[in-house]
């Protein structure tokens, strides 16, 4: 009776694998418990202001843009100015209905080909690398954050974690609260390549620009840019 490849592989692996080695704790985790609210012991505690500032610095360093805004009126205003030529804008935010299509889904992702700008909510940002975590339920269509010529994401300014360990703690907590995903991604800046003689070019296959709006509800509009 011939074994399937699956059985052959598993048998070979099982017989060849080395003696058990325990998993190490993650940086910041103590050996006793992976406390969900543990501050990362390997890095100092940052204040929300510091995290936002670090996040913006990183994002700008990788070719993205950031705006701290009081609300969607400001976002609308900025987008109208920056994307005056946009013919087709799609958004997952009903607050932007005045300038964008805001459907619940599309039947065929190929029809998104001519989208100039996609504006979506994301869950949180990561200060150490300028990335935002977005799950498919916020994307309308999985292809949308990639196929649009330009991308903007909206997060709350207070929703910025220090590093990737905290990011995954937050994702795990959300999952416990029932928020699962079939697809999700971290997006850090516009798409890019340096494959031609290490010259950095923004806009490889994904969006050519990427903007993050940080909602700061405590901000007032007065004295604004």
């Amino acid at each position: 009776m011939t074994m399937s490849s699956r059985d052959k592989i598993l048998a070979a692996v099982k017989s060849n694998q080395p003696d058990f080695r325990e998993l190490p704790p993650l940086p910041g985790e103590t050996a006793s418990a992976a406390d969900a609210s543990s501050a990362n012991a390997a890095t100092p505690n940052f204040s929300p202001e510091q995290l936002a500032s670090k996040f913006i610095g990183l994002l700008e360093g990788i070719g993205g843009s950031a705006y701290i805004v009081s609300g969607f009126d400001r976002i609308t205003h900025i987008l109208r100015e920056e994307h005056a030529d946009a013919k087709r804008i799609v958004s997952g935010c009903p607050e932007l209905a005045s300038l964008a299509e805001t459907p619940a889904h599309y039947d065929d992702p190929h029809t998104l080909e001519n989208i100039d700008l996609a504006v979506l909510r994301a869950h949180f940002g990561v200060a150490e690398n300028g990335a935002c975590w977005i799950t498919e339920d916020l994307m309308i269509e999985r292809a949308l954050p990639f196929i649009a010529q330009h991308l903007a994401l909206v997060i709350h300014k207070k929703d910025i974690v220090a590093n990737m360990h905290e990011a995954y703690e937050r994702i795990a907590k959300a999952e416990k609260d029932g928020m699962t995903y079939g697809f999700a991604t971290f997006i850090a800046g516009p798409s890019k390549t340096a494959d031609i003689e290490q010259s950095l070019v923004l806009g490889a296959h994904g969006p050519r620009s990427m903007t993050v709006f940080l909602l700061d509800e405590e901000m007032s509009d007065a004295g604004f840019y």
């Binding site: 990788i62 990335a131 697809f183 999700a184 991604t185 971290f186 850090a188």
Partner: peptide, 17 residues
């Protein structure tokens, strides 16, 4: 790999569309 803090996209595929 390249000195970047992270790649532009770190996509988590779990279920088919």
């Amino acid at each position: 790999a390249t000195g970047q803090p992270i790649t532009t996209y770190s996509s988590h595929f779990k279920k088919p569309r």
